[in-house]
Simulated scan of single mutants.
Amino acid sequence: MNGKNLFNFGPVLGYYFRKNDPSRKNNFNMKTMHFINKLSLAMFLVCLVVMLFRYVL
């Protein structure tokens, strides 16, 4: 593992901003799972920014 791949946020941003795929089935459970995943990733990133901000100050 090298340092270049450590800060590769492309897949994360792609997960947040991808379009709906019409060929995929979309039921309530899948929508709920994706919402919870996006929410937990957002909370993690916000906490990471807060921790870095506190560390700098």
Results as ranks from 00 to 15, higher is better:
29 N>M: 13
51 M>R: 11
20 N>F: 06
40 S>W: 02
55 Y>K: 13
3 G>F: 09
4 K>M: 11
45 L>F: 15
48 L>P: 00
48 L>D: 08
49 V>P: 01
35 F>N: 07
53 F>Q: 00
52 L>Y: 06
38 K>I: 11
38 K>H: 15
50 V>M: 06
54 R>P: 01
47 C>K: 06
32 T>E: 04
24 R>N: 02
53 F>C: 09
39 L>C: 03
32 T>R: 15
26 N>Y: 06
54 R>N: 02
2 N>T: 02
50 V>G: 07
27 N>P: 00
25 K>W: 11
3 G>E: 03
15 Y>W: 04
55 Y>R: 15
11 P>I: 15
3 G>D: 08
20 N>L: 03
17 F>V: 05
10 G>W: 01
20 N>M: 06
16 Y>L: 15
20 N>S: 02
53 F>R: 01
37 N>V: 02
33 M>V: 10
16 Y>P: 00
32 T>C: 09
13 L>W: 06
29 N>C: 05
10 G>E: 08
31 K>F: 07
3 G>K: 09
14 G>Y: 08
34 H>F: 14
28 F>A: 13
11 P>F: 08
3 G>P: 02
6 L>I: 14
23 S>P: 03
23 S>G: 02
1 M>E: 05
42 A>Q: 09
39 L>G: 03
27 N>W: 01
45 L>A: 10
21 D>I: 05
35 F>H: 07
19 K>R: 15
52 L>V: 15
11 P>R: 13
50 V>W: 12
25 K>S: 03
4 K>Y: 10
18 R>T: 00
55 Y>I: 12
39 L>Q: 07
44 F>I: 14
54 R>M: 09
5 N>V: 04
35 F>I: 04
44 F>W: 12
35 F>D: 01
25 K>R: 05
13 L>T: 01
4 K>F: 11
56 V>Y: 10
26 N>W: 11
20 N>H: 05
13 L>C: 09
50 V>I: 14
27 N>V: 00
3 G>M: 11
26 N>L: 14
38 K>L: 11
22 P>Q: 04
55 Y>M: 07
6 L>T: 08
